[in-house]
Simulated assay, not measured.
Amino acid sequence: MDKRHPTLADVARVAGVSKTTASRAINGAYGTSPTVRDHVRAVAARLGFAPHTAARALATGRGGPHRRDRIEVLIVDPDPAAMSAKPFYGRVLAGAMGALGDEDLALEVRRVAAAPSGEDDAPFGRLLINLPEAAVAALARRSRTVALGRSAPGVTFVAPDNDGGASQAAAHLVATGRARIGAVFGPSTRCADERKAGFLRVMAGAGLSVASVDGDFTRATAYAATRELLRREPDLDAVFAACDVTAMGVLQALRETGRRVPHDVAVVGFDGSALAEAADLSSVYMPVEEEAASAVRRLLDPALPPAGRLPTTLTVRGSS
């Protein structure tokens, strides 16, 4: 009688899967569906297969100091209130969690004021937001990495069509007869620069100049910037805000200076967040949840093709 203990290869053969899939299913690691996981575990139990403890620890990453059972969402944003004040981040997390589904991976969120340097406890994968190219490239050498927004050469990214969305906003203001137009743009980041370029290109094509200031995607800065714009250009009849949070500061400044929206000044934002809907704000919708979900899918399966630019669409509401 064969007294040998059943091996992982035996389980895989009987279950009709590869050894890699069998290992993942038994150890509860990423990359297997609940149906496959239950089937493989049932076969293992029937055969009397017992995984070696040390091997299980290596397979799951739970047996040592370097945990590989999580995806880290790493956000660079100097605003201490960013996670509660900016709906964008909540939408990112919603999309990421939806894409994880039943995968046995935790989602860890870390906001830092500046890009981290040096070695750290490398996770299974990282979703990066607002990091400079050098930092993205360094982190990509240590774990699977996908950036939201175009970043370091060779690093997978998922991004909305920022340029095209801002172009739609500009074209809408021109088409509705606005001619003295201002803008509160964003900080010096790739996505903000793309929005700025798209907006200014359409304005130049229409023969219109733009009175603008650069902001930082916060309401307080946008409020102060709009007050300054109105001091310089009191006859403005439209303002483009580079994100919906920025638009909230613009609307506050207009209200406090006696301007009626949209009768005196039209306002268009960017994000298409719940803030825009609540404020009856015209805004460029970008599919943030799908952007984050697409990024997580590419962390789980690097063989997926590039996502390309996700479409953006202007939603016109009462503010313009």
Rank of each mutant, 00 (worst) to 15 (best):
V265K: 06
I26Q: 00
P305M: 02
L236A: 03
R126G: 09
A192I: 06
T218W: 03
D10F: 05
D216Y: 06
V265R: 02
T35E: 14
A134H: 09
I71V: 12
A159K: 06
T53H: 13
V316I: 15
V261G: 02
V76S: 03
K3A: 14
K19E: 12
V184E: 04
G198N: 10
D271H: 06
A242E: 01
L230M: 05
G31A: 06
A166I: 05
V43S: 08
A204D: 13
V316L: 07
A293F: 05
G61P: 07
D280E: 01
H66D: 14
G258F: 10
V43A: 10
T21K: 03
A137R: 08
V76G: 01
A192G: 05
G215H: 06
T246E: 03
R201H: 13
A25C: 03
V14Y: 02
D216R: 04
S33R: 01
G48I: 07
R201S: 10
G182F: 00
A57I: 07
P87A: 02
V239N: 01
A147Q: 10
P51V: 01
Y223R: 14
A45P: 02
T189V: 09
V213A: 04
A179L: 09
L208N: 13
E289K: 04
S84N: 12
V73Y: 10
L148A: 06
R67V: 09
R255Q: 10
R41N: 13
L107V: 01
V146D: 05
V11T: 01
V284K: 11
E291R: 09
T60A: 08
P116N: 13
G164S: 09
A94Y: 11
P160Q: 08
L208M: 12
R219H: 14
